[in-house]
């Protein structure tokens, strides 16, 4: 291998059309500041037009180019090659069905967003009046660190608990749900939390911080899930004490 060249080991196949998974090697002369996505485009243009991968915006906004770089989930468009060494292994994200080569099927990820009801449901005045949550308020302070998610699926791929329990909602859906549970305009807050507080929801998280480490936007889904857990415990304690004060058996 000459200087300035990188050897890419790329996982091919694995989809239904081409089920046999294998690794193919490409050698590419790289330029300074080149990204993983630039390299994939160059390989596809110059060496192998059949290479399958996915991207849209190229600038870290859309969240479609995520894949595994040397065993870690990263965004291809903003991962520079210079820090990766002379051998780079590219694989599709784990925990997702493979469509073809490096492209995965995001359906399970977005299905979980739906299961977590990851959209605001304001009613009454909140649905017609402009929002009044001041930027300096505590409420806004809680929501702010969790809103920049681009649904790239990197946290979902990094999470060992999604691998262990395919029904687990996963970091991104719970992170989104946390922003809504904290939002005073959202009217289904308490019901939303009840929907999340089960073995395939918040209690499946083991605080391993894999999602926090991997998130390219610097979000900590772990912190969001811990926030949801604290609220669930507080709600449970309130209803426990309330039922005792009313002279009923807890949980009845």
């Amino acid at each position: 291998m000459a200087a300035g060249e990188i050897r890419f080991r790329v996982r091919r196949g694995g989809g239904a059309d081409d089920p046999e998974a294998r690794y193919q090697t490409y050698t590419l002369r790289v330029r300074p500041r080149m990204t993983v996505l630039d390299a994939l485009v160059a390989i596809q243009n110059g060496q192998d037009p059949s290479l399958g991968y996915r991207y849209s915006c190229r600038v870290g906004m859309c969240g479609t180019c995520a894949l595994q770089v040397n065993g870690r989930p990263r965004w291809a468009c903003r991962t520079r090659l210079q820090a990766l060494g002379e051998r780079v292994t590219l694989e599709p994200l784990t925990n997702f069905p493979v469509l073809r080569d490096l492209a995965v099927d995001m359906t399970p990820f977005f299905d979980k967003m739906k299961r977590a009801r990851a959209w605001a449901e304001p009613t009454g005045a909140a649905s017609s009046e402009p929002a009044r949550i001041p930027p300096e308020s505590r409420e806004r302070g809680r929501i702010e660190p969790h809103i920049e998610c681009i649904t790239c699926g990197i946290c979902y791929s990094a999470c060992s608990m999604v691998g262990h329990d395919p029904a687990f909602l996963g970091p991104a859906a719970l992170n989104r749900a946390y922003t809504l549970v904290c939002d005073s305009r959202d009217e289904i807050g308490p019901n939303r939390l009840a929907n999340l507080a089960d073995e395939h929801g918040i209690w499946r998280c083991h605080s391993q911080f894999n999602c926090t480490e991997a998130c390219p936007k610097g979000i900590s889904p772990t912190a969001a899930i811990q926030g949801l857990k604290r609220r669930a415990v507080a709600d449970g304690a309130k209803s426990f004490v309330g039922s005792i004060l009313r002279g009923r058996a807890p949980g009845a």
Binding site: G15, A16, D17, V98, V104
Partner: peptide
Amino acid sequence: SSGPPVPSSVWNVASWRSMY
């Protein structure tokens, strides 16, 4: 039209290097 996810194995020692 999709195939199974990329298998990850505890016994794949090389993958330990990527653990956080």
